[in-house]
């Protein structure tokens, strides 16, 4: 009797995880009905950092592109959202798309320059581009030059959906905006994780994973590494730009130093990914929780907090390069977002 085969990626753990994720998502959507404003702000922070971390992980963990210049896309996206609202009266919620597209457009010349630099020098190359964008934006007087600016009151009040939330929840306008940005951050994080997971399971995703594991072998079976680098870099810039726009939309104020901060938008993100586990989708999720816990515990210690975070990142890289998730998954074999394909034989 002829055997036939099927290819599966699903595991029992992943099915449980998917069910749990749906429940978690429903709870997350409902959070504004019960939670305090400070909890919503904390969750907003976690979700946006998670989004940035997932995109950096896509770049470095899968694409092998260690960028230290992602703050270029956070800052440029955020500035285009503010510029759009101030100069052309673009609704800030629609401005999020503008932020993503602007970051995507910026990514084209950035990649053109940075891809000329081999290996490790690519990292500093992206940093130089971020500095150039920061210094150029600081010359843009319409959005406050070097000192920055606030989102104008009429743009803030015009945010789509904020008025409805204000009425439905019976809250003040500022709280309504926090709820709106929280829901947007939730949607962005879910779309990011879902999108990356979907992408990694497609043919192109397989090509990307092959490149990560062995460039030479991947090329020999016809994977176009140059093209994959471009795809990953542009996609990451687009998502990072939207996240940047959203972060500063919630913040309401922008300046070149905060929008292009290498510590906030690149160092923290790198530590989240490295500590959680680079090259996995689960890693950044675990990493952002550890990061938030550390920040809450050590918030009062200023510089010590960053020292601990840096030292932890170094220790993980030296002794457990797979991160916390790597340790966990290595011991138990659990994968919540499996992308390995397994061949099953049916007689």
């Amino acid at each position: 009797m002829a055997a036939h085969y099927t290819v599966t990626t699903r595991t029992t753990a992943s099915q449980i995880a998917a069910a749990a994720a749906l429940v978690l998502l429903a709870v997350a959507v409902a959070v504004p009905f019960i939670a305090s404003r400070s909890l919503i702000q904390d969750l907003f922070f976690i979700l946006t950092m998670l989004t940035l971390a997932q995109f950096w992980n896509l770049l470095a963990g899968y694409g092998g592109l260690v960028s230290v210049g992602q703050q270029a896309f956070v800052g440029f996206g955020a500035y285009m959202l503010f510029g759009g609202a101030i100069l052309w009266g673009v609704n800030p919620v629609a401005g999020l798309l503008l932020a993503g597209v602007a970051a995507l457009v910026l990514a084209i010349p950035t990649a053109f320059f940075a891809f000329r630099l081999q290996g490790a020098y690519f990292a500093i190359g992206t940093w130089v581009v971020a500095e150039v964008v920061r210094l150029s934006v600081a010359q843009w007087k319409a959005v406050g030059g070097g000192t920055g600016t606030s989102l104008p009151r009429d743009a803030r009040d015009a945010m789509w959906g904020a008025g409805w939330i204000e009425g439905a929840f019976d809250v003040r306008a500022s709280e309504a905006r926090d709820i709106l940005t929280y829901w947007l951050a939730l949607a962005l994080a879910v779309a990011t994780i879902g999108g990356i997971y979907w992408f990694l399971r497609t043919k192109r995703g397989l090509a990307l994973a092959a490149l990560r594991d062995n460039v030479g072998a991947a090329r020999s079976v016809g994977v176009d590494s140059e093209r994959m680098k471009w795809v990953v870099f542009l996609v990451a810039a687009f998502g990072t730009g939207i996240a940047g726009g959203l972060i500063f939309l919630q913040n309401g104020r922008i300046s070149p130093d905060s929008a292009f901060s290498v510590i906030d938008w690149t160092a923290f993100v790198i530590f989240i990914v490295v500590i959680g586990g680079i090259g996995t989708i689960e890693g950044p999720i675990l990493g952002v929780l550890v990061f938030f816990a550390l920040q809450t515990l050590l918030a009062d210690y200023g510089a010590w907090y960053l020292m601990v975070l840096g030292a932890l990142g170094i220790a993980v890289m030296l002794f457990a390069p797979g991160g916390l998730w790597g340790l966990l998954s290595g011991r138990t074999g659990v994968q919540l977002f499996p992308i390995q394909r397994r061949l099953n034989r049916h007689d």
């Binding site: 470095a60 092998g64 260690v66 230290v68 290996g119 490790a120 990292a123 510590i263 160092a267 790198i270 530590f271 490295v274 680079i278 960053l306 020292m307 975070l309 840096g310 030292a311 990142g313 170094i314 890289m317 030296l318 390069p321």
Partner: peptide, 14 residues
Amino acid sequence: ILPPLLVTFGLSVV
């Protein structure tokens, strides 16, 4: 190239 980059980046922050 990833580990040396990330370790020296961590060292920079520390």
